[in-house]
Design a protein around this nucleic acid. Sequence first.
DNA 1: ACAAAAGTGTTCGGGTTACACCCATGG
DNA 2: CCATGGGTGTAACCCGAACACTTTTGT
Lengths: 226, 226
Amino acid sequence: MIRQNIRVAVDAVVFGYKDRRLNVLLIKRDIEPFKDSWALPGGLVLNDESLENAVERELKEETNVTVDYLEQLYSFGSPERDPRNRVVSVTYFCLVKPEHHNIKADTDANDVAWFAINELPKLAFDHTIILDMAKKRLRNKLIYEPIGFDLLADKFLFSDLEKLYMTILDKQIDRRNFRKKILSFEILEELKEKVSNGRGRPANLFKFNQEQYFKLKKEGFLFDIK
Amino acid sequence: MIRQNIRVAVDAVVFGYKDRRLNVLLIKRDIEPFKDSWALPGGLVLNDESLENAVERELKEETNVTVDYLEQLYSFGSPERDPRNRVVSVTYFCLVKPEHHNIKADTDANDVAWFAINELPKLAFDHTIILDMAKKRLRNKLIYEPIGFDLLADKFLFSDLEKLYMTILDKQIDRRNFRKKILSFEILEELKEKVSNGRGRPANLFKFNQEQYFKLKKEGFLFDIK
DNA sequence: ACAAAAGTGTTCGGGTTACACCCATGG
DNA sequence: CCATGGGTGTAACCCGAACACTTTTGT
């Protein structure tokens, strides 16, 4: 029997939300293959680190980003996906709050940037497929779990949340019904602070109460925004 | 930099439904570690086969089973999960119809058997965790996708479907509401054949119309049984 | 005629949807 | 005082949940 010759990598799809747009974090490759192409951050797993640690390490090294939410997405392993060697890549789905958006190119990459999801360059390897799957996961999770809060600042306006949902789900949402629904969950704290953003009536700031959410979830509560 | 020394395996959680019980397919290991323990079927991926092919090959070799539904479940890669070498295992979620339940021990395994889900032996490695995740996936998918039909014979009684849902979701279901709901989807064909199973009024056979389901799905239809 | 499983309709209530006007601020 | 975005309530409708009796067969 021939010795198995497969390498294990991790790749991350990192979403950020800024200026009412959904963005993805990409790096520009500085080595072949696909030199100078944009690609998802990632790399080979070290012998003694967990898969999650590998993603976090690669993200730190390549982009200097620390994520606020991370979960496994899918594993890609078709024999031809990397022209050099066979590589099985375990991919991760990540969300980053705006306060952690600061990026910095480093090891293995000569450039790092946020790209609006609908203005993407051609990606290396099968990364477009991975990204598509991540977009689906995002839309799905947004409806059934309170992950939208991991894309917003700790304190946010209700209108931010509403716009985030409209942007990512790509549909109109009734302001009154949306607010009623979310508030009925009782997982938001309404802060005393108000923010006036230029024109218009100043708005209240809100904060996501994660402990309260976990407590409710344990009691059988289901987050659900159609 | 040290050469990466990680192996890639696949493991399968295969569910079957028989005698109103949910069963899992297990093999008895005939080599160390965990010799004589029961385990999920699986094994190392060959250099030039896809992950899906690897699962199907291992299942064929170890159990002689061909599955009716297969999807990736999750990848497990903690450094200590296999005492010999580091192994990252890509696991799969499989369903088998009763007509394909015939099993046969073969390579790498000295025994193969179906176990009722609530009468499981201790499992090797981290396979209990994998199985738990698969159970959750099954319950979840049963509600949002018509996968129950991949656990039943091609022609089945409505009461079979109903009992399958009650068994797997572990709750009572109102017969009238359930039938109304499923029939309203218009993805079942009512056959002319009736079956009398011992006592009671003979029942109609039904067949799942997959083409119709795909067509409706494309048009935006969502299968959903609470 | 009796036991066992199959088949069938209606009512009620809660939740989702649709919808429009006033409020607070800055310029 | 006007433009801009924030904040709020009610009525109609639909869907899910609850619920019991009749039918068909085998013994």
